[in-house]
């Protein structure tokens, strides 16, 4: 097998999916984790349990319900079809949505422990110095929990790259649309095309290792001494 014949699109799709998922999760995860860490409200425990579900459910169960939700007859699927003109399931956008749900706890829980690790008195000091909650969040709280943010980003990213079951359920395996690298490997093996599977796998291993290495090196640098 010639390496120039390899279809690199699954890699590109996986990378795009992981980057988009992670970026969106940072924006959703920070406010959610902030409220779960600092506010007390009625359904807090209920929400905590709900948000942890993706951790224990088999990806097929999650994928099945997401498929129902995003399919032609699901409410989200219907809304999306009206807005975008095509179905949500079996399209890249559907994968992004499913990945966000699937990787949600991997972003939110590190962020929660990050928020809880920031000493309460530096937050209060900022308030007594006249700084609003938003300014305190961005200038005092988040800069002092960089390792937690980085952990959230790493875990969400890695988890999305390695995702298989959910993607297969809601995305199928459509070339250039939903056939990410983990599925491409599965297909190659099914077709007994071991050399392609090998190349995909080894690239994924090296890539994943380098990503983690860089992130952990950064993490060391970010550790704030208190």
């Amino acid at each position: 097998m010639d390496i120039s014949n390899i279809d690199w699109i699954p890699f590109w799709l996986s990378l795009k999916l992981a980057v988009m998922t992670t970026v969106i999760l940072v924006f959703i995860g920070i406010p959610v984790a902030y409220f779960l860490s600092y506010k007390n409200f009625k359904f807090k425990t209920f929400l905590e349990a709900l948000f942890s579900l993706p951790l224990i459910l088999p990806p097929t169960v999650l994928g099945f319900y997401l498929l129902l939700l995003m399919g032609k007859n699901g409410w989200l699927g219907k809304i999306w079809e009206k807005l975008a003109g095509h179905q949500l399931a079996f399209h890249f956008e559907g994968l992004v949505f499913a990945s966000i749900v699937f990787s949600f706890p991997f972003m939110v829980y590190p962020l929660i422990s990050g928020f809880k690790s920031v000493p309460k008195n530096i937050i209060e000091a900022s308030y007594t110095l006249g700084k609003s909650k938003v300014e305190t969040l961005f200038k005092v709280i988040l800069p002092n929990m960089k390792p937690a943010i980085l952990t959230g980003i790493t875990l969400s990213f890695a988890h999305t790259i390695g995702e298989f079951g959910v993607v297969l359920m809601v995305g199928g395996s459509i070339d250039g649309q939903t056939k990410v690298v983990s599925i491409a490997i599965y297909e190659a093996v099914e077709q007994l095309d071991y050399s392609t599977a090998h190349i995909y796998s080894i690239v994924l291993v090296v890539f994943s290792f380098l990503t983690l290495l860089i992130l952990y090196l950064l993490n060391k640098k970010f550790e704030v001494k208190i």
């Binding site: 000493p119 008195n121 530096i122 000091a125 308030y127 007594t128 006249g130 005092v140």
Partner: peptide, 20 residues
């Protein structure tokens, strides 16, 4: 009034400096 709107200076026992 929230603490932000009160003109007070507060010095904490354990300093509460911003480590970053």
């Amino acid at each position: 009034l929230p603490p932000q709107k009160r003109n007070v200076g507060f010095v904490f026992q354990d300093f509460a400096l911003f480590p970053n």
